[in-house]
Each structure stands twice: as structure tokens, then as C-alpha cells.
Design a protein around this nucleic acid. Sequence first.
DNA 1: CACAGCCCTTGATATGCATCAACTTTTGCT
DNA 2: AGCAAAAGTTGATGCATATCAAGGGCTGTG
Lengths: 241, 241
Amino acid sequence: MNQINNSVDEMTMRTPIQCSQCSMQSICVPAGLIPSDVEILDKSSREPHLYNKRSVVYSEDRALNSVFAIKSGSVKCYTIDSNGKQQITSFHLVGDIVGLEALASGKAATYCETLETSMLCEIKLNKLFAQELPKVENNLLQLMSRRLANCSKHYLNVVNTSAEQKVIAFLLSISTHMHQHGLSRNEYRLPMTRTDIANYLGLAVETVSRIFTSLKEQSLIDTKQSILTINNLNALERRVA
Amino acid sequence: MNQINNSVDEMTMRTPIQCSQCSMQSICVPAGLIPSDVEILDKSSREPHLYNKRSVVYSEDRALNSVFAIKSGSVKCYTIDSNGKQQITSFHLVGDIVGLEALASGKAATYCETLETSMLCEIKLNKLFAQELPKVENNLLQLMSRRLANCSKHYLNVVNTSAEQKVIAFLLSISTHMHQHGLSRNEYRLPMTRTDIANYLGLAVETVSRIFTSLKEQSLIDTKQSILTINNLNALERRVA
DNA sequence: CACAGCCCTTGATATGCATCAACTTTTGCT
DNA sequence: AGCAAAAGTTGATGCATATCAAGGGCTGTG
């Protein structure tokens, strides 16, 4: 049925892998650690777990003293406003780390929910910090700093641009992420619904749908179910410049 | 002429104060450090400096391995897009720390420019990290985490709300900041122009102006030059809920 | 395989905010 | 203090995108 999900299901059959053997080493917290540090991380701090589609990983305001590395799959983070309306603040794909905003307060700032069957690795911060490894903290700092930079990039995308530019920039940001993780930047699966995309970008679903249709008519992209194909990356990039 | 600026001018007459004597201790990096750590920070890492209005503290893409604590005054951070248009990504007031997004890349992600005469304290990161003080790094982590949380809060404000809600939420966020720093939450100076506010919120200046007028007509706020008075905090809060 | 529910798409209409234009007030400089 | 330039305000008009409405296509389940 689905290549990605099948491979995830296979993972559940195996015993949890060690950080020192994890395929995400270069992007996860231990990246850049000296081997002995990774050992310490292994023993105390991490716990991989499989989540079904639409599982809530953590809830807004819940005590949270961990971050989660996404080993496979994807999640959306959202808040619920006083009128009960969901507002998505971010999507996270393979290789991302979620839960960083909770570090200061010890409480989750958003809900975090899987968009598909996903494998997440919980990294317990109190155990991490107890070891006082400057390298680990430094790595976290790097991650957060990058996240902050991303955050203002997304902000630029949402302020002062047309609906079309927002959608294109969104597609390109995923393309870039995929490329950075060794996957195709021109063909990937969109794990979120149009409704989610619209919510995230502050647009109406209908507008997002119309823009997809328009981009297809111009042969800039194609869609087949949830698979998105980018036919002309440069042309798309020119439109958001 | 101006109470705040006068006091800043007086500061320049004094020799630079030590971190251990700084009034911003509780909000600056050393907060929570044990006394001996503050000593180390003092000797190597910080350098206060006075900036005139409209001074550029750092420029986009410039090598940057410091963060800056705002001891007095305020700044705006912005990027310039390919069409030469300025886009403001954030404002920072007394007690804020700027430059955190540069930590990962070592390059500033934005321009940073003072909105008024301001005193900033440069904290050099390489010297800071060389000392491998887990407490200091932990503090930075806290700061960043809080910034991330703020960032998504601002994002929520910009996505999916009316122009009026954006402006009100903006005024309230400053009010909260002022209160957190022991200043009046109902009367403060807006150091940025309407044009800057409009740019930041993704609105037209005219729209911002009309909303200020409308809020004044409803006696929710008052303005006298750049001084803003909030007459009914609760009523404003209800409008953004 | 058939059915229900959700997701997506397309069309018609409404509206909030941008844009354009003119004027007033404030700020900063000599 | 006085003048020029910048910032702010107010009104008239237009357009991008929301909203309303209806139909078609996936997707998952018994």
C-alpha cells in the first residue's frame, strides 16, 4: 500500500536501535558528539516509539521535559484557541526535532499529532542535562538557533505575500527539507491535507485548491493522490523571489 | 527633551558596569549563574556600547558570533528582499537579547537597527563557549526556547486574524513586555513608526492609522505623540481572544 | 465490493484591506 | 524659532481572497 509505512512497520519488529547505530545521527542531538558522549546518551536518555496515524504525541500545557526526534513519518503542531478553532503552527518531517519550545517552561506550547504512522524517539532532557555535556547542549543550541531562523523565514512567507506565493514557498520549503535529507526534491508525498495547509498558511481551503489547480494548468507541478511532483523548480523559485 | 534618552546619555559618562553589578542580571545570560561563573563572564565576554538612533548594530549575512543584550532603547530586525523591500521580522525592547538566530550559522539572519538612542551589551559567544559553563549554555537554551514560543505566538497573531486584532495583539504584547520589566503596562512609548508597525504586521500604514483612530474613538486607547495609553486593557484582551 | 464520510474542487458572490490621492501634524536640522 | 522633510491621517475606489454553495472523487471499513 505504502512504501514508507511498510518500512516503518518493519522497524517495530526490531529491537530499538542505539543512538550510536541510528541512521539519524547526523541530524539528531548527538551529532558532533565524541563517541563516549553518545554512549552516555544511549543509556539514559532516549526511547523510540511507534505512533499510529493521528496519535497525539503531547498536548498543549502538558508537562513536557523531552524533545522528540522524528525517525520516520510526520507531525503537525497546533494550538486550540478560545473558540475551539485549531491553528497549526508548524509541520515537522523526518529528521526534525519537536518540543524545543517547551524547554523553557517545562510545558508543551502546542499539541503535537502524527499525520501518518510515525516513529519518534523521545529524548529526556533532565537526564541529558544531568550529565552536563557541553557538546550536547551546544548541539541543542545550534538546533534551536536554526529553528529560530526558520521561524522568521516562515514568517516572511506569511506576511506580505500573495496566496500563490505562500503556497509555492510552502511547497519549496518541503522540497528543500527532502533534499537535505537525501530524498528527491522534485517528488514527494504531502502528508497533510489541503485543509491543514490552508490553516497553516492562513488561507481558505478553496484558495489553496484553486492555486494547486492553477499551478497544474501551468505545468509547474503535478499531483497524483498525495504525491506531489515539481516539474519546474526554477520557475517556482522565481515566483517567490 | 526625553527622560529615557537623558538617562542613557548619563550612562555613557560612567565606566562600563560589570555583569555582576548589572541591573539586567535577572534577564540577561548570567541569570541563574553561580557567582563565580558571573566573574568569568565579566572578564572575557561582554562589552557595552552606546548606539545613536538608527544605527545598524549588525547586517544580514555578516559574520556574527555575539549576541546583544538591550540595556536601554530598542531595535528592529529586518531583512531586505530581492526587490529591495524591507521586511521587519521583530522588534526588541529593553531586556531582550538579539542575535540568537545567528548562533547556528555564525552569520546574522537579519539587519538589526536601533529605533532610538540605545545601550547594547555585546556578549561574545566563542569566549563564552570556550569556558564550557553548562549553566550559561543552559540559560541560553532557556532564552531561545522562550523566543521560539514567542515566535509562534506572533505567528498566531499574524495568521487568520483581522487587521484590528493584529494591531491590538501587537499593543498588548508590548504591554506585557513592559509589565514583565517592571514598567507600566498601561502607558508606554512606542519607539517605532506606524510604517514600521504596518510592515511588521503585514498591513498598510493607512489601515494601522485607521485602527488607531477607531480605538481612540472607542476610548480604548489614547495617543499623545509616541506615548500610548491603554484605557481598557480587559476590553482589548477580549477582542483578541 | 459497496457504502459512508471526508477531502477536494469549482463556481458565484461578498467584503476587508490595499491602493491611490490629498491634506495635516510632527520631527529634526540650522 | 522656522522651515523642510518625514510621519500620520482621512476619504474614495478596486481587487484579492474569504465565504457560501454544490458536486465529484478518494479512502477506509464491514
